[in-house]
Nucleic acid binder design. Structure first.
Length: 480
RNA sequence: CGGGGCGUAGCGCAGCCCGGUAGCGCACCUGCCUUGGGCGCAGGGGGUCGCGUGUUCGAAUCACGCCGCCCCGACCA
């Protein structure tokens, strides 16, 4: 594709984000389908890495994958009052199929709790069938008013775990366990620090007793909900009659959970690490960790250089940029924009000296090293970059998290923040968990992101709105 | 859905106000030459000007309608 300049973050953060996605060849707007995007090979490869990392962890915690229908009978949605109310505005409905009007319309799944409820009721009879631990990798569709690639599109890819348990305690353990799986992948794979916490009542999932989330901070200080895990209580169990016979022989409703992360993670990844030169991918999610750019001047140099390049590539599993007619300079720019962690140059001079040149994407540092140390140095550089990216992001989170002890302070901090200007903050304040209080924050377009599990900033205090004593501070921020 | 911007070659744009049959840069193709951070020169291919209707002898250009994209808000993973 044609490669244009990237708008600097400081000038226009939203445009910068778009430029990075486009220039990194991650995705593009579907254009012919409103609100949808095409995830291109580079973007999909990152998704595959995330899928693999997550799926491994799901399996390790006892879950199995299934696939459920895309179409859900409309009546299903209505069985859980709060659920239908929450999703009704964003549903797409199929009313005609096979040339005939359907007796009962289907909705295209916005999520699968209802259809899971139906099948759980078929599959579960006894406590021996519990816990039931399933997950599905799927697409879902929500008619969004405003879309941004990866962050919010009408159709997106995600994973939704659904589990049923015999007790609330066990279900809650599951909810928290999966929240920590998400936190682990976010921090240790994506190098994206997150705050694990409980959603406020106003922000919880429609139909859940309680929702948990991991919240990340983007480079402009805005929050991104990067994953959610819900305690569904017995709400869907009751709506879909999911009962089991206990050891004691009593019929009881199951306790369910659901949890999900989506392709939105890729948006978070981009807005956490990338810079004005383009995409920056932490080594652990980079589909291509290293690329070798061969350099030769004369035709007789070409053979030996290519040979050395191929051999080195094999030793570290790197890709050789064999394209002819492209100058090395053009190739460097190309791979830089693709976020490749390490680019290795090898030319006649290196060949003569037995060296290679190693360039690290995030710091831009170049190092000349002996060829026989490449494997070690390459891996070491990847590790260092992974560690440094996380440290840098964590520092940014710390630097932009502040405390406030009154509504006025919160306002002063958040009032003038927009996505364009950047400079958003996470404000830690005491606030009672009451939807009426969340509503007060709307005035400056902020929301309660979550109530952290780890007590980041002191203990109990007085609610900045009502003066009531509350156990801890909550995270207030503007969000995507 | 409200406000703003935009839609002309694969990409970025000019032309539109003042109607006369489409141009520039990059990319692409051919040849030569080059290659350690976006090589150069020469030649060449490619567009029913987002869609529709209307006004006109004639519409990229004017009018009306529609569609899509981006930004800002309300809604949301």
């Amino acid at each position: 594709m044609a490669e244009s300049p990237i708008t600097p973050r400081a000038k226009d953060f939203a445009t910068w984000y778009q430029d990075v996605v486009l220039q990194g060849d991650m995705a593009e707007p579907a254009e012919i389908v409103k609100g949808c995007m095409v995830i291109k090979p580079n973007g999909y490869a990152v998704w595959e890495v995330l899928q693999r990392e997550l799926d491994q962890r799901f399996k390790a915690t006892g879950h199995q994958n299934v696939y459920l229908p895309l179409l859900i009978p409309e009546s299903f949605l209505k069985k859980e009052a709060e659920h239908v109310e929450g999703f009704a505005p964003e549903l797409a409905v199929v009313t005609i199929a096979g040339g005939k009007k359907l007796e009962e319309p289907y909705v295209i799944r916005p999520t699968s709790e209802t259809i899971v409820g139906h099948f759980f009721s078929k599959w579960i009879q006894s406590y021996r069938d519990l816990p039931m631990l399933i997950n599905q990798w799927a697409n879902v569709l929500r008619w969004e008013l405003r879309t941004r690639m990866f962050l919010r599109t009408t159709e997106f890819l995600w994973q939704e775990g659904h589990t049923a348990h015999s007790s609330h305690e066990e279900a809650l353990e599951e909810v928290v366990r999966m929240l920590h799986v998400y936190g682990d992948v976010a921090e240790n794979v994506m190098a994206m620090p997150v705050i694990r916490g409980v959603k406020s009542r106003a922000e919880k999932f429609a139909g859940a007793l309680q929702s948990y989330s991991i919240e990340a901070m983007m480079q402009n200080g805005l929050a991104l909900q990067a994953g959610t895990s819900h305690d569904l209580g017995q709400n869907f169990g009751k709506a879909f009659d999911v009962q089991f016979q206990s050891k004691e022989g009593k019929l009881e409703y199951v306790w369910q959970t659901s949890w999900g992360v989506s392709t939105r993670l890729i948006g978070g990844l981009i807005m956490t690490h990338s810079d004005d030169k383009g995409l920056v991918l932490p080594p652990k999610v980079a589909p291509r960790k290293g690329v070798i750019v061969p350099i030769y001047r004369k035709e007789e140099e070409r053979g030996p250089v290519m040979e050395a390049a191929e051999k080195l590539a094999l030793s570290i599993g790197a890709h050789v940029d064999r394209r002819d007619g492209q100058t090395p300079g053009a190739k460097f720019f190309h791979w830089e924009r693709q976020g490749v962690p390490v680019v290795i140059e090898i030319g006649p001079r290196d060949l003569a000296a037995g060296n290679v040149v190693l360039k690290r994407r995030d710091t831009g540092t170049k190092e000349v090293i002996p060829q026989d140390t490449l494997v070690a140095k390459f891996n070491e550089t990847l590790d260092a970059m992974q560690t440094d990216l996380f440290a840098k992001a964590r520092q940014r989170l710390a630097d932009n998290t502040v405390t406030a002890n009154s509504l006025e302070e919160v306002r002063a901090i958040l009032d003038d923040v927009t996505a364009e200007k950047g400079g958003g903050k996470f404000v830690m304040a005491h606030l009672k968990d009451d939807p009426a209080n969340d509503a007060m924050l709307k005035e400056f377009r902020a929301t309660v992101r979550n109530i952290p599990l780890e007590d980041h900033y002191d203990g109990p205090g007085k609610c900045i709105l009502t003066g009531e004593k509350v156990p801890q501070r909550v995270v207030i921020a503007k969000a995507y």
